[in-house]
């Protein structure tokens, strides 16, 4: 008995490892490397409190004397050494990057999940139900698509800033960001899911289910949804990169994560002031981290698109 139960999942794992999908993954060094980079960055963001040598948000650990320490060089006054140097207030750049990445990743993932759930639901309903419901949803999508997502996000941010009392601005900023980026990004998902649903809905297996008398909800969830997910996966990956960049951009422009909860974009915004005065490390390292994150997610998405597109095989 125990023998049997252990072989079943194993063979499934073996099957997965033997699949063409995994094969194309192993055969693509770019995919493997970017997957490793993404995992490394995500893990170090998740475990930032354990990895970071300093807590940059604990005022007690800050020493203004440590300000502007260059990377790997002892500080003139205190003799402390920081891997990636410190900023104007003496905060360890490495630690702020770890914590900043946490904010960036959290906002990115949350925004994409939000956009994904909204987009899939609306796309599925629009595609399957059709009629005026579809017209309404897709017109709204069209109108929104005319406006670049970054602009939509900024508008939402601006409006939220007007609506939310000023003392709550900093606390709410992250959530406003998530909603702003998520709302500006659902259209992609909705369009793709609707398109795929229109194709699937005419397929005979859906007709077989309809003939049985299956309800709309069951058909959409059980039959259509699993079959439209692979393009969603590709878009979700690319959207994640876009969301991280959008968040960084908004924060850079000063309409995103507040200095009390800095994301990578906020750090770059702060660092920009010191670039011309020679403290290059304050801006360089957050920028490199942001680039590495966005690039490896993009590379994964690019590979995923090719791997999931049977016509390109």
């Amino acid at each position: 008995m125990s023998d049997q139960t252990s072989t079943a999942p194993q063979s499934r794992l073996a099957k997965a490892l033997d699949s063409d999908f995994f094969y194309s993954f192993r055969r693509s060094p770019v995919a493997v490397v970017s997957f490793i980079v993404v995992m490394l960055l995500v893990l170090s963001a998740v475990f930032a409190p354990l990895i970071a040598p300093y807590d940059p948000f604990d005022p007690g650990s800050l020493d203004l004397m440590n300000g502007f320490t260059a990377p790997m060089a002892p500080n003139d006054f205190t003799g402390d050494v920081f891997w990636l140097g410190t900023d104007d207030q003496g905060r360890d750049v490495f630690s702020t990057i770890l914590y900043g990445m946490r904010v960036s990743l959290f906002v990115g993932l949350a925004a994409v999940s939000f956009a994904m759930i909204l987009g899939i639901t609306l796309g599925l309903v629009a595609g399957y139900v059709g009629g005026w419901v579809e017209t309404l949803i897709m017109r709204a999508a069209d109108v929104q698509l005319t406006f670049p997502s970054i602009l939509v996000a900024m508008l939402i941010f601006g409006i939220a800033k007007g609506v939310i009392p000023i003392q709550h601005h900093d606390q709410m900023a992250i959530w406003v960001l998530i909603i702003a980026i998520g709302l500006s990004d659902w259209v992609q998902f909705a369009r793709v899911v609707r398109g795929a649903t229109l194709v699937e809905k005419d397929k005979e297996y859906v007709q077989a289910a309809r003939m049985m008398g299956r309800g709309r909800g069951i058909i959409m969830l059980r039959h259509i949804l699993p079959n439209v997910l692979s393009p969603v996966l590709v878009i979700a990956t690319i959207s994640l990169a876009l969301a991280i960049i959008a968040e960084a951009t908004l924060s850079f422009l000063g309409v995103g994560a507040p200095p009390t909860q800095p994301s990578l974009g906020t750090l770059i915004r702060i660092g920009q002031d010191f670039l011309f005065s020679g403290e290059w490390w304050i801006i360089l390292f957050p920028s490199v981290t942001l680039l590495a994150l966005a690039l490896s997610v993009n590379l994964l998405g690019d590979w995923l698109r090719d791997a999931l597109n049977p016509r390109l095989q």
């Binding site: 397929k203 005979e204 297996y205 007709q207 077989a208 003939m211 008398g213 039959h223 699993p226 079959n227």
Partner: peptide
């Protein structure tokens, strides 16, 4: 319901008449 149970259909395209994810 009763009617639907008594009639069944065989479709043209064997590649689309079965849900690939089931």
């Amino acid at each position: 319901e009763t009617y639907r149970r008594q009639i069944q259909m065989i479709f043209q395209d064997p590649f689309s008449s079965l849900n690939p994810r089931m």
